[in-house]
């Protein structure tokens, strides 16, 4: 119960800490400990779902930095992830060590992202969405037709990641690697958001005229947001390539971009916690729907095929209901619940 009804700080530094109270830190510690034992007790299918979540978390938090924090909408995020995937895959195929390949993938995606971010100087909102959609389509075309690099429609085989001679060749081992990188990505975005660069991003989103008056170079910071966001997206892509060990152009199509947008909208625009929640939700939802159609098919075998068709509809419906009833995102709901319990039983 410590620190609940009065929180005082003795330095600005203590106040700037991400987790301010011992209680929060304990909760986080328990949560991490729980995550770490997960692969030991869950079966390998469930661990694979966790792995997909970790990758989705990186992709979502990176898009949230660009769209939620800096206000620059992007429909090209899926393709930027693809650039990272192909670049990292090619790097390891050419004998570059895995970690360096991951960074190269990030770097390649950052360059491409910044290039396609240039129109953001002039374009806002729906117009920027169209410009980034063009980026998505151009890159899809490149993925499909630059066969010497991407393998074209045949795709590209990739080896599992190796770190200092240790091969991450099963779901369990992969989990620890993916979790570590996801944690780093979350830390990076959290740190950026509490320093001058993150504030500049938000200032561009909220009132670019005032941002300019405060000395924020709009173009420079928009490009930085595209670069940083795409870098992390590229890292997610590199992980994806080495985790699934096979990549092909259709994995990085517009559907991927849209599902990442859905994640950050459902989770909460501009929120790191929201990115995590959105990624978890969007990864879990299809799995839950698949599992429930499977069990329902067991009970009513005759309507099995209809149920599968229904699944897609339910997926869309759940998303729509979410947008209607939780327009501020899951992170906001989470905040309200916490605020309620903080004052319990004296809430009014």
């Amino acid at each position: 119960m410590h620190g609940k009804c009065g929180l005082f700080f003795e330095s600005y530094r203590a106040e700037a800490a991400v987790f301010q109270t011992g209680f929060q830190r304990t909760c986080l510690g328990l949560f991490v400990a729980l995550l770490l034992v997960c692969p030991l007790v869950l079966d390998s299918y469930l661990v694979s779902v966790l792995n997909l979540m970790c990758i989705a978390v990186i992709g979502a938090v990176s898009l949230n930095l660009l769209t939620g924090v800096c206000g620059q909408i992007s429909l090209g995020h899926g393709a930027f992830i693809g650039v990272g995937a192909y670049a990292a895959a090619q790097a390891t195929l050419h004998g570059v060590p895995f970690l360096a390949a991951l960074l190269l993938g990030g770097g390649a995606a950052a360059l491409v992202g910044m290039f396609f971010g240039v129109p953001s100087l002039r374009l806002k909102g729906i117009y920027l969405a169209i410009a980034t959609l063009a980026a998505q389509l151009i890159l899809e075309y490149v993925f499909l037709h630059w066969e010497s690099v991407t393998g074209g429609s045949r795709g590209l085989m990739v080896d599992p990641p190796q770190l200092f001679g240790f091969a991450f060749d099963n779901e369990r081992k992969m989990f620890y690697l993916l979790l570590a990188v996801a944690a780093c990505a979350l830390m990076v975005v959290t740190n950026v958001m509490r320093t001058r660069h993150g504030r500049a991003f938000v200032s561009i989103r909220d009132f670019y005229l005032s941002a300019e008056i405060a000395g924020v170079n709009l173009f420079g910071y928009k490009l930085a947001a595209f670069g940083l966001s795409s870098f992390l997206a590229g890292v997610a892509g590199g992980l994806w390539a080495h985790y699934t060990m096979f990549i092909s152009a259709e994995q990085f199509n517009i559907t991927l971009s849209i599902s990442y947008l859905a994640m950050i909208i459902i989770g909460g625009l501009g929120s790191v916690v929201g990115s995590v929640m959105g990624a978890v939700f969007m990864t879990l939802l299809p799995e839950v729907l698949t599992a429930s159609t499977r069990s329902l098919t067991g009970i009513f075998p005759d309507i099995g095929s209809q149920l599968v068709a229904l699944r897609e509809g339910v997926f869309g419906l759940v998303l729509m209901l979410f947008l209607i009833f939780e327009p501020e995102g899951l992170a906001n709901r989470w905040r309200l619940i916490k605020a309620y319990w903080k004052l319990y039983p004296f809430a009014h």
Binding site: R196, R199, A200, V202, S203, R205, D206, F207, L209, S210, A211, A214, G215, V216, G270
Partner: peptide
């Protein structure tokens, strides 16, 4: 009014100092 609505008062003022940081 042309404030950064999503930022705290503190952060609004910190953005004001952007060119000094």
């Amino acid at each position: 009014i042309a404030l950064f609505k999503g930022l705290s008062v503190l952060d609004n003022l910190m953005v004001g100092r952007h060119h000094l940081i």
